[in-house]
């Protein structure tokens, strides 16, 4: 359905994203994980064709969607896909809706644009979708303004907009980061149900490994603008090969004992302007040897997964 190969993105002379590859079949959920600044959102923007908005462009690689390469798709054709076959769910529902417009028209716009519906047909569809997203009184909600609703409710509206034209692929860029913990679980469960009911392909971008473990079929771990490990979720969680993946999984609280301390990964994600030479993770890596600082590691096959590490599977 969706296949990204060796994607490279540049903003002027800076290339914050390179060598990102993944593929996604119908009905599958792919998780993209990594810390802030690892290039997850850029990957989402690339797939949606929205990079030019922020001044970026794709300099190498391909994004195949249903047999056509999106990287050289002309804007009018891309516009038909966006909101049509490709739906986007953004990170912050508080700022994702136009505050001057009622909810109804904002959702209606999608069906009117992509399904050629008139105003009343589109409204009927909006009400129906809001209903399936377990929004109470969808008819009245249509006449509300965004500021009159809670964050979780707004995120459902954003999801409704993404679903209105029955997309094939849904890209969810940290859909729960800005929400209350209790609401987070609801939204994740909702997305999971939608994928199953509608046979959607979901790209779920998150920094939460436990969310990946719960909902995803495959996972891509990103670090400093590169994919450093990818494969089926079970394989990655059972035997993470890259030290960074191991560290990320190590960060998931077990919640079993009182004296458990929350673990983190020492250091920070490097700035786009000075990505380290060699393996981008080597300055923070406990297993790093000399070669890690000089040579970029190639992907090494391990079971169904691949990891870009000179010493894959090294002891934790």
């Amino acid at each position: 359905m969706l296949e990204v190969r060796d994607l490279e993105v540049a903003f002027g002379p800076v290339a914050p994203l390179s060598g990102v590859s993944f593929s996604l079949e119908k009905g599958e959920t792919l998780g993209i994980v990594g810390e802030s600044g690892s290039g997850k959102s850029l990957t989402a923007m690339s797939v949606m064709g929205l990079l030019p908005l922020s001044g970026g462009r794709i300099t190498a690689g391909s994004i195949m969607f249903d047999g056509q390469d999106l990287t050289n798709l002309p804007e009018p054709a891309y516009r038909k896909l966006r909101g049509g076959r490709l739906g986007l769910i953004t990170q912050n529902p508080m700022t994702s809706l136009d505050p001057l417009q009622k909810i109804g028209p904002q959702v209606d716009a999608v069906a009117r644009l992509h399904l050629g519906m008139n105003a009343s047909e589109a409204r009927a569809r909006t009400v129906e979708i809001l209903g399936t997203l377990r929004i109470p009184e969808p008819g009245t909600i249509c006449n509300r303004y965004p500021h009159q609703m809670s964050g979780g409710m707004k995120q459902r509206i954003v999801i409704a907009m993404a679903l209105a034209a029955d997309p094939d692929v849904l890209v969810a860029d940290e859909p729960t980061t800005a929400l209350d913990v209790t609401v987070q679980a609801q939204i994740i469960r909702l997305l999971d149900d939608l994928v199953k009911e509608r046979d959607l392909s979901l790209v779920l971008i998150t920094h939460d490994m436990s969310v990946v473990a719960q909902t995803c079929d495959k996972v891509v771990v990103m670090y400093a603008g590169r994919a450093i490990e990818h494969g089926p979720v079970e394989a990655i969680f059972d035997a993470p090969q890259h030290p960074y993946t191991q560290a990320l999984i190590g960060c998931i609280p077990k919640g079993l004992s009182d004296d458990e301390h929350l673990t983190g990964i020492p250091g920070t994600v490097p700035n786009v302007l000075n990505y380290p030479k060699g393996c981008p993770f080597h300055p923070r890596c406990t297993q790093a040897k000399e070669i890690c600082a000089t040579d970029v590691p190639a992907f090494v096959q391990h079971g169904n997964g691949q990891a870009a590490c000179h010493f894959p599977g090294a002891p934790q």
């Binding site: 908005l53 516009r79 966006r82 909101g83 049509g84 986007l88 809706l97 136009d98 907009m161």
Partner: peptide, 26 residues
């Protein structure tokens, strides 16, 4: 630069509709 404008593009709205329907009122 607002987030919701990006989402308007993500809905596939043509630029002139975004300009006159959403940007101008703001």
């Amino acid at each position: 630069r607002e987030d919701f404008v990006m989402l308007l593009h993500a809905k596939g709205l043509p630029s002139y509709k975004i300009l006159f329907g959403h940007l101008m009122p703001h």
